[in-house]
């Protein structure tokens, strides 16, 4: 039996790594080869990809189905404005600090809403997002209900020229997406990640194995919320303008993200990537139709959930046994 080895990597996953590295280099050079509109679109894609990976980590792996992560997108956005305008921080520092603050805020929030089970947890997260929205709308210094724009002096700190600024926010988005994906991947490969998978498969069994479910879920919630706030900061660094309704929009920051993950394949690492590409492809095709586009997304998501609950990636994986991010172990004959 010595001819058998247990391994995680496969030929496909190694090929994916090589192609991936090459793609990184090409994408990093985009400011030199892509037009301004394309650069903006790609930046947006990276940020949505990050949100999707984080939501997928919570819902697909930790069983924390949230419809309120817009709370942290908006929080991160507002922290960018508050810390630069009133704290005098550099925008990038402010965005990172926003993530740290979000982590701190998410702990007491979790203590409250973790009391709600399953679907009620989901609506609880939405209440929290509403509390955030209504609270920020009360702060007159940040523009109250109508919002405010980022002062020109602060915008200039990112880059003196418009082209430099756009390149910078593009790189920040790309970097953030890489860090988020790598973190989620490494986390799922770690002992904690295995614990998470155990919880997803059976809470009772996991508890029996001595896994502290509450603590593990809390860690996921806090880390995902902190990263989500960082992405929120980057989103509003692109937009340069914030208002409570835009910052805490359930459609923009949760509905779209859920559609991306569900269509791509929930509970898989590849799903959010495929979902994001499909989402933006659909959007480019149907952009002129506005509300119809959203109806189509809703219908597609329902059909996928009913007919192929593991999404597009699940269908591909079932057919070809592919795995680009090797998480599972395989037994293979060495010879």
């Amino acid at each position: 039996m010595s001819g058998w080895v247990v391994t995680r990597s496969t030929r496909a996953s190694r090929a994916a790594m090589v192609i991936g590295l090459f793609a990184m280099v090409v994408l990093a050079a985009a400011p030199w080869w892509a037009g301004r509109a394309d650069l903006r679109l790609m930046g947006e894609i990276y940020l949505y990809l990050s949100l999707a990976c984080l939501w997928n980590l919570m819902a697909g792996y930790a069983g924390l189905v949230s419809v309120g992560q817009q709370a942290y997108v908006g929080f991160g956005g507002y922290m960018l404005f508050a810390l630069t305008v009133f704290g005098g921080f550099h925008p990038v520092t402010a965005i990172v600090l926003g993530g740290v603050l979000a982590a701190l805020v998410s702990v007491p929030v979790a203590a409250l809403i973790f009391r709600l089970r399953g679907a009620y947890f989901a609506i609880g997260t939405w209440v929290i997002a509403e509390v955030f929205r209504l609270s920020f709308a009360q702060i007159q210094a940040l523009g109250g209900g109508s919002g405010s724009s980022l002062p020109v002096a602060i915008v200039k700190e990112i880059g003196a020229k418009k082209a430099a600024r756009e390149a910078m926010s593009y790189w920040l988005a790309l970097g953030a997406a890489l860090i988020v994906m790598l973190s989620v991947y490494l986390f799922l490969r770690s002992r904690r990640g295995l614990a998470l998978t155990a919880i997803r498969d059976s809470e009772t069994a996991a508890a029996g194995l001595g896994i502290d479910i509450w603590r593990t879920k809390l860690e996921v919630y806090v880390v995902a919320s902190a990263f989500t706030a960082v992405i929120g900061g980057l989103i509003f660094l692109q937009k340069l303008r914030i208002s409570p309704d835009a910052a805490f929009s359930v459609n923009d920051w949760t509905a779209f993200v859920i559609f991306i993950v569900v269509i791509g394949g929930i509970g898989t690492l590849e799903g959010p990537i495929i979902g994001t590409l499909l989402f933006f492809a659909l959007r480019e095709v149907l952009a002129d139709f506005g509300t119809i586009y959203l109806m189509v997304l809703g219908v597609v998501a329902i059909v996928v959930m009913l007919k192929a609950p593991r999404g597009v990636w699940g269908l591909i994986r079932d057919r070809y046994d592919l795995e680009f991010f090797p998480l599972s172990y395989r037994v293979r004959n060495k010879d």
């Binding site: 419809v67 459609n251 959203l294 219908v299 998501a301």
Partner: peptide
């Protein structure tokens, strides 16, 4: 997720 899609 299905009722969420329905909502949209």
């Amino acid at each position: 997720l299905v009722t969420f899609g329905l909502s949209v």
